[in-house]
Write a protein that binds this DNA or RNA. Sequence first.
DNA 1: CGTTCAGTTGACCATGATCAAGAGTGGTGG
DNA 2: CCACCACTCTTGATCATGGTCAACTGAACG
Lengths: 250, 250
Amino acid sequence: MPNALTRRLEEFTQLTDADRAELTRFGGQSVCTIPPRRDLISEGTAPAFLYLVLDGWGSRYRTLENGRTQIVDFVVPGDLCDLNLFILDRMDHSIGAITRLRVAEIGRDDFHRVVTNFPNITTALWWQELVSKSIHREWIVNVAQRSARQRLAHLFCEMFLRLESVGLTEGFTCDFPPTQNDLASATGLTAVHVNRTLQDLRADGLVILERKRLTIPDMSALQDAGLFNPAYLHHRRLARHTDRRRHEHR
Amino acid sequence: MPNALTRRLEEFTQLTDADRAELTRFGGQSVCTIPPRRDLISEGTAPAFLYLVLDGWGSRYRTLENGRTQIVDFVVPGDLCDLNLFILDRMDHSIGAITRLRVAEIGRDDFHRVVTNFPNITTALWWQELVSKSIHREWIVNVAQRSARQRLAHLFCEMFLRLESVGLTEGFTCDFPPTQNDLASATGLTAVHVNRTLQDLRADGLVILERKRLTIPDMSALQDAGLFNPAYLHHRRLARHTDRRRHEHR
DNA sequence: CGTTCAGTTGACCATGATCAAGAGTGGTGG
DNA sequence: CCACCACTCTTGATCATGGTCAACTGAACG
């Protein structure tokens, strides 16, 4: 069974056996474990490693002058933190563990060897970087334009599809460890309001969320509820859950 | 006098004379002009060129299923649209002209020649890409966490510093062509509320905005009003307007 | 000189924030 | 094994930021 990073990158391009072997090596060496709610990387630092998430959930977040924090993205298996390491001076945001987080440390040398010898992988890594930028744009739209109900529905759709693309879903169910506080911080709402809105979504049968497991009984209905259009994820294989009706409007 | 792209990239790295000559060529060939309020690139298309903005302002925006649009970034001289062209299948957002826009078309071949022969420039281009990703993150924070007043103040600070880094400011004044409608779309507010909030900022002497010109009488005060911390812009030369008080909190 | 778009103002309303308190849950150490 | 503590979830009451709707002014441009 291929690892999550390989699966992700194959959303974009066909990799050779040599590429795959290299990516497997990536995940094999110097694995380390971060306990829940601890930072993997902190704002203002210049970490020595590129981290590949093997297992667990994390969050990218920014801290404001007034002490509040905003989650700007979730981090799931197959995600890298952070390519910009070797280009930007210091981190402008933090990465925190939501669950226990297993990550592989990739050193500068290893990374450079890949960039030099594996053009396929290099391009695929930049693809991943650009997709995650596109996700940032969608989050701007999410918090700026959608109602509380739409924001949450949208977030559930996105995370489900992202997990599916790395093989971490079973049917329409997946792990979903963020607390209501995390959801609040990711959607720009308060935890109180997230709680009430979640109850609405549950009452309408759009999501089942209990014991950190998410089930989506009707993906198409949830996509409608969140004004969700998966194009921004740039998955090659998104035919499955794509709502064909999406393209009727305008 | 160097062009805007050269100035921008030199925020990041020292370029050689050969690099600079190459960048000048970049901007010299096949220049074309887009009238105000027309799209340079539309969502869903796969444009044939990489565009370098030479003159004027534009916006990156997404259109929602319900017809509303959200500006996710402004585009000013020295910005590129879009590096992802050669990697992603199709545009997931549009680029529209706010003013008349002069852009240089850069073909795939030209671009590849640069990537192959000018590693300095290539790295600097990725730096620019990563910085613009960081700006996306800050916009998420802006719309999710800040009040209307803070959002506008923050936006003015950001755009002023971005223009300054390409040499398009005089003292504390710069061009600022977005309409109040544009500002509304960029901040997730309504035009009515932008109008009222702007009046507050003006009344408090924080901004002077008339006839598409912006003046910031007290940069430090405006930064405070917007909870603005310029670190996310990753400018090397940001000592000037950086508020030293910023680092006292927390 | 009229049409269009940007800016402005007022009245009213709704979404979601704030504050506060309590219930359920899980992990820890005595 | 139980007691305690901390965190997550839940509910209620009240409030405020910013949205909506509508009308009007002013400026720009053909």
